[in-house]
Design a protein around this nucleic acid. Structure first.
Lengths: 245, 245
DNA sequence: TAGTGGTCTAGACCACACT
DNA sequence: GTGTGGTCTAGACCACTAT
């Protein structure tokens, strides 16, 4: 057997070391979403492993949701999907079907100083300027979610040049197209609070009614924070279900 | 190669059919939590498979959280743990550490007719009698969660004989000990509402303050519903976090 | 037809737990 | 020491995709 070409802790199994290596290549951006990886035989050959060992490493990454394998086509770096976002538990379905993206109405977009808690999340200096946006998401003409979005000025300066009319209902593709920033993952936190005056008016509910609050911090491949947003919707529209085994 | 001894859809791979078979044995109660399975070699032999194939089936069940494997000891049916319950996102930690089970104060226990929505969940006839219990969970002397619990009269009649003082802070072990009912899994649903008069008084918050509501339907191995409970706590103590990849 | 991943086999060797 | 699961190898054959 040839010498192992994998670095890392020698006590770890080979398939682990290979998985870590590939994970890092993806994190660092050396491999981007949609890229095809070499076949398992090629990978195995390259690192002096048996195909089964390479296969096990790939299986682990598939399990982590980082890779996707399609029989006959190859192994691909998975594009992040927000299918599991807490957001989808707001029960907006346009009458009948489900699944659609709610329409957005942009209420404002401007450059102003970050609130301290946002600056901290985005790893920006306190009191420095950022881009703030406020949107209302609407289904069948009824407001369902109010969003406050913050971006660092760099690298999102080009985002300010885009006409509001050209912003669709999804922002992440715009970040990619105009600023070459790709959201790779995110953390979400769910809390609840009583509706304040402004939120109540915009969401068309009574002051003091409970609302669900979802804070999301979106990150790039390198883990660098890209966007912070807070989404608020009436609690009566929210319904989150999990399984315990 | 010997004939396959596995039933099921012949188009499915062998490891899938074996996994399905074992899953059913566990669901039906033929194998109970804590039971040790035969070694992978024995299983492989029994069904005329290669060890690697049996291994893959077992790996799948480990991934599903149904089995647990310990090197040198064997493969075991996993006991359900409520580590992932939404419940743990109520931020009660006794000063300092975390992790403890909050103390319970039983407020009442009696036999009365199910509310319709509870009867439906527990698959009992509407208007029939059930066991109702109300508890307050307490940390450091402060009330944190109010619970309403419903059980079907059968098979829980023996539960009524137990002295309140003998009920600890955890109920599921009691169900097992006195009624031979084991909770195998559960579904939880999270919503929020404004505190009513009673809840506010018991939880020591203002009327109208938002509270988080977790409904849980616990089931036995056969999927039969065993217990329904609704837990309510102040939203300000609740903080739920997820990762999106 | 060539190349990919998916299934399955049949072993060798190691680390760990019991007793 | 014996038996368990964990790692790793080296292949065969199949199903699917692209050309």
């Amino acid at each position: 057997m040839s010498i192992t070409l994998l670095k890392g802790d020698e006590r770890l199994p080979l398939y682990q070391r290979l998985a870590d290596l590939l994970r890092n290549e993806i994190k660092s951006g050396a491999r981007k979403p949609g890229d095809r990886l070499p076949s398992e035989n090629i990978i195995a050959e390259d690192y002096g492993l048996a195909p089964g060992t390479a296969r096990k490493a790939l299986a682990e990454l598939v399990n982590d949701g980082i890779l996707e394998r399609v029989q006959g086509r190859g192994t691909f770096v998975r594009r992040p999907s927000f299918d599991q976002s807490l957001f989808r538990f707001f029960r907006f379905r346009s009458k009948g079907s489900g699944q659609e993206v709610p329409k957005s109405r942009i209420r404002s977009r401007s450059v102003k100083p970050f609130p301290d808690h946002v600056a901290d999340k985005l790893a920006q200096p306190r009191k420095s300027d950022g881009i703030q946006m406020s949107r209302l998401r609407i289904i069948d003409g009824a407001p369902v979610v109010l969003e406050e979005i913050w971006l660092p000025l760099e690298p999102f300066r080009a985002f300010l040049e885009i006409k509001t009319d050209d912003l669709g209902d999804l922002l992440y593709p715009v970040y990619d197209a105009c600023c070459e920033q790709v959201v790779a993952r995110a953390e979400e936190i769910l809390t609840a609070e009583a509706a304040g005056k402004d939120a109540a008016r915009l969401l068309n509910i009574a002051v003091g009614e409970p609302i669900m609050v979802v804070d999301r911090l979106a990150r790039g491949f390198d883990g660098c924070p890209l966007e912070w947003r807070r989404s608020r919707g009436p609690a009566k529209l929210f319904h989150y279900q999990i399984e315990i085994r």
